[in-house]
Write a protein that binds this DNA or RNA. Sequence first.
DNA 1: GTTCATAGTTAGGTAGCCTAACAGTTAGGG
DNA 2: CCCTAACTGTTAGGCTACCTAACTATGAAC
Lengths: 149, 149
Amino acid sequence: MNTLEPAPAALQTLAQDFREALRHSVYLVRRLDAEGELSAAQLSTLKMLLGDGVRVGEIARNLGVRVPSATEQIIKLEKAGLVRRDPDPDDSRAVRVVLTAEGRAAVDSANERRNAVMAGILETLTDDDRRALAAALPVIEKINGTLHN
Amino acid sequence: MNTLEPAPAALQTLAQDFREALRHSVYLVRRLDAEGELSAAQLSTLKMLLGDGVRVGEIARNLGVRVPSATEQIIKLEKAGLVRRDPDPDDSRAVRVVLTAEGRAAVDSANERRNAVMAGILETLTDDDRRALAAALPVIEKINGTLHN
DNA sequence: GTTCATAGTTAGGTAGCCTAACAGTTAGGG
DNA sequence: CCCTAACTGTTAGGCTACCTAACTATGAAC
């Protein structure tokens, strides 16, 4: 659209290719998550709780989902004994979700298992490949950051 | 685990970081798909049909889903008038799924819209960022390729 | 010409997301 | 004060996209 850009065609191509790569990666993420005791959504939720108690709204915002979706995950996790819902001392409307000891253990083991699978894949790459990947990571994170408005 | 590796810790870290980046990217993909006339699953299915007629099993394999899931998508697309199911002349058990003219148009427009959004994001990066990203793309594709067994 | 394998559909179930409607709590203005 | 508006979270109901199991129909092998 903008003829002042140096190489708009290259940008389009990169956009297309990157988008395609991400689309395929969704399947990879799916496979990493498939054989786990914890679903992707649950693991993401738990990870967020590693600090102190977190409110439901904040969990939803960080996950990029609506509040009811976060509530749903939290209820499942609570039933599984991985989180606890404490009343917020400062605001009795709010809830502070905190990890239980089991929850913490579950995060650790799920993370380790997934990382091991990914490390296994990365092991098959060349050093140059891994360097290129590492160099692009901050960029990908920057792109992902676009989401947080 | 393997002490013979030159830098196992770095590999673990890269695995962890890359996994994290991909996990976040799922939300980006979700956003790209959200405001579209075509769902992600439908667009992926349609894209695969740009060549000649493709069999249901092949579509499922390429999408990384089971055959009934592919059937389900195809039926929806057929109802929307975007694909046709022709009998396979060589094997009457099989079905050849082909794009209709509307289907082709839908792929094009959906692709263009999504690419434009992604290009808009990439535009905000530096040249170095884009170079790093472009360099990593083949690596990411290689990793994704791991899926196809 | 049974028997076994293969291609696809149908049926029924689950996870994870959504919006709309609700209940309880807080905060501000008359 | 209290009444209204804003906010936090839950409940209810619905959708999409996946799954497994069971089925139909055709093809292949012997």
